[in-house]
Structures are given as structure tokens and as C-alpha cells.
Design a protein around this nucleic acid. Structure first.
Lengths: 263, 263
DNA sequence: ACGTATTTGTTCGTATGTATC
DNA sequence: GGATACATACGAACAAATACG
């Protein structure tokens, strides 16, 4: 029986009974549309039903292709809304020199942040321990949203040693943690360690980050110390997994630090 | 079984109209039971209904406490099963000297792995690029589950340069990647970078990792290079977020701060 | 606050071609 | 050849999240 189906508008022909599975052909087709700019970052793909109609296949077949594209990180699928071409993600580099917001600047994007809270709080025990403070100590808490290009990508809680008076005022004035620390005499510091987990967002996280509730967040905890090696800040940040990759460039403690180029 | 308690057996009294919210008191009570060993790692907490009865409060109040404990990482909640005290997680350290399985050994646990696949495959373009191979190249793929104490904590795909003949045979014999590389003459290598994302598991991931479908995984991509600086292996690993924390101990590059990029 | 339409997610079932033992 | 497993493809129905009036 001749398969008499009408041609699709875009000219997307599938070859049946070739060596290549239909869903792979659909995947390749969409990949090409993404790479050649027919579908631009942020664009919504046609609905699964539309694609199924367009290619003359079952929705399951389309879903297989969609799933492969999502797994490959090329698109992002949101239940009830649709599938979207993924925007370039922020590569957030972690190193001993990681600064609070300046990291983003190198990527020639506009960093920013919205202050949610700035107050003194009583520490939980494990945070106090990390900061080398006695149990029940108080500390300065700054909570803020990290934004890039106007999009919220993270929610950060910064716990500072309580003796850093003036920090809150300076932060309200400058909007930058690094500058504020400089103002009150902490010119240098470095990050000692970072711990990374994957979590589901709380309802509050999802709201603040503008995130569907079924998408995970990257949770980082970190400790910054001052030039004397004294704990300065404990940080607790949740990054939207849609917009942020964490990158570790491993320093080479061995011989030649340059290395890479060879034949 | 009598089960005739109006008062709770442990003597857990809530103080109403004190300054402290009821759910915080419940949270503290459970925290104490966890820290003093009444509830041990892996233990199942009483059902929310039981707790509500025990404390004489509404189930919503209990849920607030449960939520806070989960947020703090002390318990793990599984829909339809119950809440459990979290077991100690694996701290997986990332550094230039990170080895394929030996990382775990330091924690005095029994590492292990189950081989899923070992074969030659055609590379996708971006992986080929990372390995500095031409598009469409083939490579050696080893896929395995990483186990600690008999529990699967991760699913890893290792893509090796195609000229490493004998690697698969050596791996089947030794069950260790580091040993296998040594056998075929690759004595030294180091990790150049690691990229970290949070993802939801595919159905296959969830099955292999023994993970509820609604818990995220940590996805790491990494590149290992040999002593000559040539790309050796590209790794793609998904870790169960229930059992693994990634830790970065930031090396201190001493003075010369950003010296890496000197060409 | 509620119902409706849209869209993705899940589960059941059926059938077929291919590779393997 | 036969038995079996597996990936592919199609169909129907319902569940769940979202958007909108």
C-alpha cells in the first residue's frame, strides 16, 4: 500500500524503512533548524501534535526525538507550556578567586542583583561551626537574587562574621558585596571550598527563580576566608539549573603550570 | 498492642503560645532524636498522621516541620513511602588528581562498579571536539555503575580515544579503569576541567540508580588529559543527589593570580 | 475562585522488523 | 528454522501543569 500522505509545508521529508529510525531523523531535522537559526534560542517549538502532523508520524515518535534533544541539552521542555530552544547557559567558574558577582562580568553580560534581606540573625550550629563561631552566635545575613541580563539565575544567602559592622549599610549603598567589604577594610579574601548538591526547589525558590517546580536547582555551599585565613563568609546559593553550569578548572599542583600546548 | 497514649512516650511536650512556633518545636524535637541516636540513619520516621496525633497538632503543622528538616538535608521524603533519616552522603572530591574510582577508597568504604557496556561507538560532535578528534570519529565507550557499600550512587559514561586498544579487555580483567590504563601504558593523567549541572533523571537513570523519579541527579562532564596534555577521556556521569555531594577544595595559586592563561 | 482549553507526561495495548541464540 | 529479545512505530485514553477568561 502506498503511503499517501501530503507533503509537509517546511519540506521535511522522512525516509521510512531506511536504516535510520524516524525519531532520529526528526531529531536531526530539529537540530539543523536550531543550528542554522530557523529556531532561535528561547523560541518555542511547534507542539508535539503539530510536529506529529507535520511529519506524518505518531506523537510518541516525536516525543522520542524531543526527549533526545532535551537529554542532549539543546531544548528545555515544560509541561503544559511547550518545548523551547535553550538559551546559552551561564558558565559560572568556581575557583579560589571566585568573587561574589564579578564572575559574570567577564562574559560581557550585565550582572545585577535584587536585595531580599539584610539583617542580623542567629546562626544554626553547622554554619556557626564553618565560620568558627561558638554555637548560638549571631551573624550578618544578606539574601539576594543574582540576575544576568535581567533574568534571575540564583538565590544566595551570605552569612558574614558579626564583627563586620557597616557591611549592611555599605551594601545598601553600593549593591556589591566585594565593594562593601573593601569599604570596611576587607580588601582580600579567597574561597576555600565549595560543596555542590542537586535539589528540588522549595515553593519559594521556584517562585523567586521563576522556575517550574519540577526542575532541579544546583545548591552550592561555600566558605570564604580572609587573607589571615579566618573564616569570613559562609554562602548558600541555589542556581537555576536551566541557566547555570558550574565549571571547575582544575589547578595543577604539580610541575609546569602552563602545559596545554604540545604536538 | 495497647498503644494507649494521650501523652507521648518520649515526653515530647509542646508549649503553646510560647514565643516558638509549634512546628519549630516539632522540628527541634525530631532533630534531637536524630542527633542523639533515637532515630538512626536510614530509619523511617513515624507517618505524618502518627506525628500529628502524637503531638496533638494538625498534620499541616507536622508537614511544616518535615519540610524544614528536608530543606536542611536531615531527612529525605519519598512520596508514598515515608520520611527517612538521611544516611551520611559520599563527599566526592573533584581535583586535578581525581581518579576514576579510587576517590571513594579514602573514605574507608568499599568501592565497586558494575559494567553495563564496553564497545566502540561513533562520537557526537561536541564530545569529539572535547577529545580533539575529527567529527564522526569513533571512540571506546565504557559505561558502568559506581557503587559504594553495595549501593549504586552513579552512572558513568567514559569515552576514550580510539587508539587505546586493549583497554576494554584490560577493563574486563581488572574492573578498574586506572589499572587498565596503566596496563596499556598510560601511567599518568589528570583532570583538566569539570562541568556540573542539575538534571532530572531519565526513566533509565532512575531505574539504574534506584532513584524515585522526582529526585534530581548531579550531572558532571569532565575531561582527562595525559601527561603530554593530550585529551584522553571525556566523562559523563550522573550521581544520585541522595548519596553524593561534590566537593571542590580550591587550590591556592599563591601569588600569580590569573596566570593560567599565559600563552 | 473556577471552569475550560492547551500542552506535555504516563500508561495501557498492538504490531512489525531485526538481531541473536 | 524457530524462539526470543529488543527497538521501533502506532493508537487511545487519561493525568497533570499551565494559561486565560
Amino acid at each position: 500500500m502506498p503511503n499517501t500522505q501530503n507533503e509537509e509545508p517546511g519540506g521535511a521529508e522522512l525516509v521510512r524503512r531506511a536504516g535510520i529510525a524516524l525519531w532520529r531523523q526528526i531529531q536531526s531535522h530539529l537540530e539543523r533548524e536550531i543550528s542554522d537559526g530557523t529556531l532561535k534560542p528561547g523560541d518555542k517549538l511547534p507542539t508535539e501534535q503539530d510536529l506529529a502532523r507535520q511529519f506524518g508520524v505518531n506523537r510518541h515518535t516525536v516525543r522520542q526525538a524531543i526527549g533526545a534533544l532535551e537529554e542532549a541539552g539543546q531544548i528545555r521542555v515544560e509541561q503544559g507550556r511547550g518545548s523551547f530552544v535553550r538559551e546559552p547557559v551561564i558558565d559560572y567558574r568556581l575557583s579560589s578567586r571566585t568573587r561574589f558577582s564579578e564572575n559574570i562580568g567577564k562574559l560581557r553580560r550585565s550582572p545585577g542583583g535584587r536585595l531580599l534581606r539584610a539583617e542580623r540573625v542567629t546562626l544554626e550550629d553547622d554554619i556557626a561551626r564553618d565560620l568558627a563561631l561558638p554555637s548560638g552566635s549571631r551573624a550578618i545575613l544578606i539574601e539576594r537574587l543574582t540576575e544576568v541580563d535581567g533574568r534571575v539565575i540564583g538565590r544566595a544567602l551570605h552569612y558574614f562574621r558579626p564583627e563586620l559592622t557597616g557591611l549592611i549599610d555599605a551594601y545598601r549603598r553600593t549593591g556589591s558585596i566585594t565593594s562593601s567589604l573593601q569599604e570596611i577594610g576587607v580588601g582580600d579574601y579567597r574561597r576555600l571550598w565549595t560543596r555542590i548538591q542537586a535539589r528540588m526547589p522549595t515553593a519559594e525558590d521556584a517562585m523567586l527563580l521563576g522556575l517550574p517546580r519540577n526542575r532541579p536547582v544546583l545548591l552550592t555551599e561555600s566558605l570564604n576566608i580572609d587573607s589571615a585565613g579566618r573564616p569570613l563568609e559562609y554562602g548558600y546559593t541555589k542556581y537555576s539549573s536551566d541557566w547555570v553550569n558550574l565549571i571547575v578548572d582544575h589547578d595543577y599542583p604539580g610541575l609546569a603550570p602552563d602545559s596545554i600546548g604540545s604536538a
